[in-house]
Design a protein around this nucleic acid. Sequence first.
RNA 1: AGGCCGGUAGCCAAGCGGCUCAAGGCAUCCGCCUUUUAAGCGGGGGAACGUCGGUUCGAAUCCGACCCGGCCUACCA
Length: 690
Amino acid sequence: MQDVEAPVREDEPPPRRAQLGADAQQLPPFENHPAHRLVNSKWLIVNRQNFAPAIYHLLFTIYYLPMHRLPEEIVPDNDQTRARAEHLARIQELVGNAYPNKFARTALTETAEGEDTITSVVSAFRKYEPEVKEGEKPAPEQLETANAELGELRVRVSGRLATPPRVMGKAAFVHLSDGRERLQIYVRRQEAVAVSNDSLRPVEEAESGWKLFQLLDHGDFVGVEGKLFVTKTGELSVHVETIQFLSKALLPMPDKLHGISDPEIRQRQRYADLIASSLKVKTDEEPGDSQTELSTREVFERRSKLVTAMRRHLDEHGYVEVETPMLSAIASGAAARPFVTHHNALDIDLYLRIAPELYLKRLLVGGFERVYELNRNFRNEGISTRHNPEFTMLEFYTAYKDVNWMMDFCEEMLRTTVKQITNGTTVNFGGNDLEFGRNFERLSMKEAITKYWSYELRETVGISFDARRLDYPDEVRFLADWLGDWSYLDQYTILPGYDPGNDKSGVNIKLTELAAQFRERAESFNPSNEPLPDSGGDEIAKRIAYIFEMVAEDKLTQPTFITDFPKSISPLSKASPDDPTIAERFELYIMGMEVANGFSELNDPAEQLERFEEQARQREGGDEEAMQTDLDYVRALSYGMPPAAGIGIGIDRMTMLLTNRRSIRDVILFPHMRPRAAQLEDPDEQTDTP
RNA sequence: AGGCCGGUAGCCAAGCGGCUCAAGGCAUCCGCCUUUUAAGCGGGGGAACGUCGGUUCGAAUCCGACCCGGCCUACCA
């Protein structure tokens, strides 16, 4: 039987403080009232232990719960939330307003904030903690010295209770956290005084501080004032004189040892993940890897540093930061499907931008020689560990430079920023040491195929690869088709349950046949007998790109520039002077991920229009991602754009590399996820299954 | 979109066909403890086992559908 939920009035706030009897007529009908649930619950099973609490809870529920009523799906009704709500009510009786507006902290330490934080106090005074060997306690003389040096330093600090209070009869310990560091406070029953949030004076009641302390829960915010000292075990602590309540945690904190392991909760409720990462108790027993692993908090701090470092680098090299439209009538500048939205006043559909590229190059036309934009792009495509529908891209453009200059600049920029962020040029990612200090390898697509497919062939087919085959269109066609078949079959061999010895599905036999087919073809290939044909045009270029993706992409672990992209898939890029089918373009790969994409910018308006028209033809042929024609951009080019190089760098992916995270969702604070069924706004959308 | 895996109290989880199967730990509540730190000791309470349906005398456990998530593939310059 479903319990009746207490209704929530939405149009007016709940009474600030329920008076006995005064709000009686405002209370819901009894069968809807939480007290009714108590009567039917096990709270009233009477025994010595819980009889008194049961009566108390009944009274409490009737008179106090209505004033802090939150919907069940936000604050579920269970023993822990009930205890917290009850503590809140009693705190209000003791100190008045439970949500004061401010708390003044001391300024003993140098901080950007201008006042002491937990982090600043810990880093400034931790040096007084006596040095002790593992598992030993400091000697009394050491403690005396330390405490003499700390002297009479009185601090006022604030933070969240990072642990449940450890009460020992007439004294207690608890740690406060500012999200980064934690600082222990020590509260004595006879000494601590609570501060009223209404009068800001001490609460005139015996042992008021102790009473308040006993009502605190893991996760509450408090401010304390007291002297710094070092405990018997050598830990820097605050000996609390006054304690002020600052805010209540009505929901229980994540487990102090395990944190939150469910990625769904971590990503949907990032706030809870951040709390967990700051409250998690660090144990010595965990494997060495986790010692160096960044916390969630640190991941996002590092992301912020990366963005700052990149901005600084560009600012120092004469670039101007600009902001171009995110809403646009034409979604162009990249090959991707856009999001559509609607402008009511103009009554037109607009697109969320898929790239700022065409706007930034308009600015080159307008006279900016160096511009950049660091912001979000939106692509209406799949979600994966490397793709989020909105992602952050740094794009910048440099007049009078070409693709080769841009590769150099990009390499130097990454080297500089990585050094600033990690204090080194080597980044460990999943056990691989990524070297940003060395010169990045530069390979054409064909070179990359040759380099990495040779290895593949030794493993699977048993013969080496003749690079010259990539110059013959028939060979390229064969190789691309063969690879398609091979990879289609090969995916079955990685499925669980695949047993090469028991080949029921016939996958093994087919793979063996394919290998034989490949050998035969390779052996009959004799370039000396054949004239060198022309490069075969766009079709062949695209097939080479396909072969590259199949055999080389995921093997590009170290930072590697891949050059010589087919022109047909690069409609905004200048063609190579040596080969009209090849674009002067590169992509930077790290850990098999495309991290950057740059080229010599096409600035001939007539050719640009031709390229757009070719894209339009592909669009009509069913390619939804073919680029949209932007005639105003062609007009801009007609005013004349200087020769220029441009690049886009994926900030999310760079952050992944610098924080050792395999999923893009781990470096985006609030990644997009399917709304929970209960959160769907339109109930009609929850269509029933037939 | 396809394949595989998962969903058990606030958190971490054991159990994977019948009678002690709804363990255990953290948290919460009560009692004791004036320098603890994964505090300790003693005691209490808390669970429609993702949802709906089926098989069965009997389902957390087996079957089906659905919801949500993760990983892989596809898609993604």
